[in-house]
Amino acid sequence: MHHTGFESAQGVWWKPAHKSEKIWVAIAFAWCMVLFAMMPLWHLRGGQNPSGIRARVEPVAFQDRVNEFVAEYGVTDANGSQVLENGIPVVQPPPGSDVYMMGRMWAWTPVLFLEKNAQYTLHLSSFDVNHGFNLYPFNVNFQVVPGYDYGLRVTPTQEGEFRIVCNEFCGIGHHLMIGRIFVEDTGLPAPGSEGGAQ
């Protein structure tokens, strides 16, 4: 019997659905399966996955790693002293190396000089509160959580000036927290279009 949603359902209401309802449920179900399949499929065939190498790390230990990284690959001037930009050390790691980047109220350390089409393992962590890694202008985003090392295998596929905009609220200086990555084209070949970052 026809009734509205605010009237009690009488008798046996466990009846077969209308044909149109069945059609829609079947189509919606099939679409849901497509939605589900796309994610594992992109892990196999796609070039952008947020998997990374994940580990716990004490903030102080991570800071030490950043310092070692700067000592190893830091850019030095004619006198042999570390080049600083706005007080932040500039680092030029070789392709294939582990790169460490730390968020701290309200700066990203260090400044990175990378090569186009080279792969790096970019370790992200925070010294204090949550920060957000947003790559300007290409809109790539990762969460930066204190106590956790997020090691992402990154291949810059465009050259030029990039910024790291903090996009997780981290206190009153949040809007000033901007870092810099410079990518130079050294003529490395582009990674294969399939699974380039795997």
Binding site: G47, V140, T155
Partner: peptide, 8 residues
Amino acid sequence: LSFAWKVG
């Protein structure tokens, strides 16, 4: 998404 930097 496919235009973004390779990351994995």
